[in-house]
């Protein structure tokens, strides 16, 4: 590929990816921005940014953060354990599991959420952060099981056998061989799981019953109320933490193999 076409690809890519983000950013700082103004006329003073310090938003951000972290960590544990167990099962069960996991990931939240709502309410978890966490874990575990299966499948099982042959105990195989190899993958998995939880809306609304308030829930309220300036601002705030997580992931994409 020539230098020029490479440049062109990057430019086109930047245009496609950044234009919507730039428009959101412009909207976030403009009090009034009406047709046919290309650039906002009145920019928001400090007052509009005070909205960010609103205790509701801050509390929602904290809830979102802890939910995401817990979903990432627990989803990683569940995902790797399930994948490890299933890779040793018979081919048919394996296949069924992969399909089932994929289904958990893509099942329409509006459709599966109603059922989850009943389950969580029955357990007394309706309207609690714990209930929402369990609900977020459903798609996250599905996704991370597939991710873990990709990793475990591509790891040379030979190393494990070799270590055993050389006299390593089972525990040593884990602590000296497998875990060091897996540690960076765990980190990626936690980030992926956290991302899934961070953006959840329908499951949070159904299981949280409006009582558990996360950033996407607050954002939906703002967008529904037609307050686009505050909505765009909240949207950008909502996008920042995942961006940091993504930086970590992108560095690692080449190694993760076919995660899905």
């Amino acid at each position: 590929m020539t230098h020029a076409t490479h440049r062109f690809t990057l430019l086109a890519l930047a245009g496609w990816v950044l234009t919507p983000i730039v428009v959101l950013a412009l909207r976030a700082v403009s009090l009034s921005w009406r047709y046919p103004q290309i650039m906002p006329m009145a920019t928001a003073s400090g007052g509009a940014f005070e909205a960010l310090a609103d205790p509701r938003l801050v509390a929602a951000a904290a809830t979102s953060f802890w939910l995401a972290l817990a979903t990432g960590v627990l989803g990683t544990v569940l995902g790797f354990v399930t994948a490890r167990l299933v890779t040793r099962a018979s081919g048919r069960l394996q296949q069924l599991t992969w399909l089932g996991a994929l289904f958990l990931v893509v099942a329409p939240p509006l459709a599966s959420g109603v059922g989850l709502q009943v389950v969580m309410l029955s357990l007394g978890f309706g309207g609690t952060v714990l209930g929402v966490l369990l609900a977020h874990l459903v798609p996250a575990t599905g996704y991370l099981t597939l991710f873990a299966a990709g990793i475990l499948g591509s790891m040379q099982s030979g190393i494990e056998d070799e270590a055993r042959t050389l006299g390593a105990s089972r525990l040593q195989v884990w602590t000296r061989v497998l875990l060091p190899q897996l540690a960076p993958r765990f980190a990626e998995s936690v980030v992926l799981g956290a991302l899934i939880s961070w953006g959840q809306l329908a499951l949070t609304l159904l299981v949280g019953g409006g009582v558990v308030r996360t950033l996407p829930v607050e954002l939906l309220s703002l967008v529904r109320s037609g307050n686009d300036q505050a909505g765009a601002l909240a949207a950008l705030v909502l996008s920042l933490p995942p961006l940091l997580g993504l930086g970590l992931l992108v560095r690692a994409t080449r190694r993760t193999g076919a995660a899905l």
Binding site: S122, L123, G124, G127, L130
Partner: peptide
């Protein structure tokens, strides 16, 4: 906000 719901021991099983 209720971080933890009020479910006693054994309550979980019964609830399930």
């Amino acid at each position: 906000m209720h971080l933890f719901p009020r479910v006693g021991r054994g309550g979980l099983l019964r609830a399930a």
